[in-house]
Design a protein around this nucleic acid. Sequence first.
DNA 1: TTGAAAGCGCTAACAT
DNA 2: ATGTTAGCGCTTTCAA
Lengths: 337, 337
Amino acid sequence: MTVQRRRHASIIDVAALAGVSVTTVSHTLSQRRPVSAATRERVLDAIAELGYQPNDLARSMRSQRTNTIALVIPDITNPFYTSVARGLQDAIQADTYFGIVCNTDANPDLERKTVEQLVKRRVDGIVFSGYYQHQEDIRPAVSVGIPVVLLGSHRPKEGYDVVNGADHESGAEATRYLIGRGHRRIGFITAPAGSGAPAVRVDGYRAALHEAGIPAEPDLLLRAPVSGDGGAQGMNALLDLPEPPDAVIATNDVVAIGAIGAAHARGLRIPDDIAVMGFDDIEAARLITPKLTTMANQSHQIGHAAGRLVLQRIAGEGPPDPQEVVFSAQLRRRESA
Amino acid sequence: MTVQRRRHASIIDVAALAGVSVTTVSHTLSQRRPVSAATRERVLDAIAELGYQPNDLARSMRSQRTNTIALVIPDITNPFYTSVARGLQDAIQADTYFGIVCNTDANPDLERKTVEQLVKRRVDGIVFSGYYQHQEDIRPAVSVGIPVVLLGSHRPKEGYDVVNGADHESGAEATRYLIGRGHRRIGFITAPAGSGAPAVRVDGYRAALHEAGIPAEPDLLLRAPVSGDGGAQGMNALLDLPEPPDAVIATNDVVAIGAIGAAHARGLRIPDDIAVMGFDDIEAARLITPKLTTMANQSHQIGHAAGRLVLQRIAGEGPPDPQEVVFSAQLRRRESA
DNA sequence: TTGAAAGCGCTAACAT
DNA sequence: ATGTTAGCGCTTTCAA
């Protein structure tokens, strides 16, 4: 660190130092019109000397594009979402688009505000994933024509595309698997609010119970915060029931791992005393003891597909109708169930 | 979703619809000058009707502030960094500042480019954490006076503050612990490049060996990618040595877990055949079998402190000298060592 | 090969 | 209580 400067140099400073017009500076940078070798060199020297970095705010004012794609996720500490983030990052051309990640902490109010912020900041595209999301949340973006891709079992609608994880089917498959192993009292720990992937997984669970002629008992459907602690709370509540379940499905692996911890703390053995399943197949699912049986979601591919979709919309390509991409989940049978 | 609009409405559109000047619109929004109740209502109606969202690019052009704080991390899938992100988010006032997370994928080139991007986008502050970072990387930000907080065992210097994790001491403590348990051939899996926290942990390791009169054997210091796979590679390389180590310290828990996996794959028992330690105490450290002995870093507090520091600098408060905040690490003795 | 000037959307003097 | 206008830093006609 040698030089210390107070403020940003502007293109005017560069022009003055190089003894040319701002137009010329602009064009040596953009290469959108020929500049004589001598001039170019003087300009580049001035840029180097001033440590000039073009102001992208001003550029975006003119071009009406920010070259920014935002990913909005409810929980940055959940490996599923960070894997989605990596997939998205791999899809957007890093030399053109700048990817930013915004964490909403599974807070409905923050989800709404974050989208508003992104609209005000004029991002070029939004990939939105929220546990508690309301379609309303993304409306400010959709209504001004910002391409939006929604993650997590929503129907594609006019104004946004959707990438889903076959949540109905995988909720049903998890349930069928447990039924096949002889379980009849199957609990489900889901998210507090009722939309998006968690709700659809519950729908699948209910459908599979119904298929098997098992009545869906309301007590066995438990709402808890989507976190390890929430999973523990949920498991404890289920075990405190007069007739506790003999198997529990959690809305994702983080919750499932919390649930297993709570069961262990009560001295229960898994899967003998109680079987547990999750969704996502995060890395920890393979690391814990017993290893977690789970429905593996293709998180990286989901992020990647979302990135491709949003880029396509930004480019004005793609069909006029909203698109839906679905990634199936796969049962990973391990020790916990 | 009802309304579908082509483009963003501007303050001029609002003014026209409300039949007032843009100044009045601006002031009903900012409340920085009185507006009659009747006028205010007409303006608010127009805003609602147009779905107007002020253009923050334009605002930032005028105010010279973007109200944005960026966190740059090398690996968004590493729980340590996401915990730092949560800590940072808890520190910045969400109603004023917008926090964004940028993942550099532990790619030196991307680290540099990301900082340049952030400078061009005129973020108000940067919290930068990079495994391979060179002081040079943050120079474009420092030289234009953007407050920067560096994470990961750097010395505070003119132009930026620092939040550290007592890496020298914790590297030494981990090593001393293993020595105390009778180990003499202690391997260390570190990051490929040589700066920041990993390097300082290695320094501490060397110091502790020296203290104990154990020669530091170059073969036992292994450089590998900072990832689970890297940990596996490193462990395999160490075990292939003519005289393999009887204990291994990994530069963080993710690497340590990969190393344990590789040892297991070879049929080795942990800690009997080989002891393993990590740094960070991520959640998975407690979940794996055997549980990982590790030096717990206060990730959330580190992020929080970084946030407070950067806010302080943005506000122009704080001492003129660069500051350093250090969080000590704590040994979490578990089964793996 | 180069320049002058308009305009992107907003805020804040400076009017009235 | 409200309006006119300069200017933030850039790109891009239009002109020379």
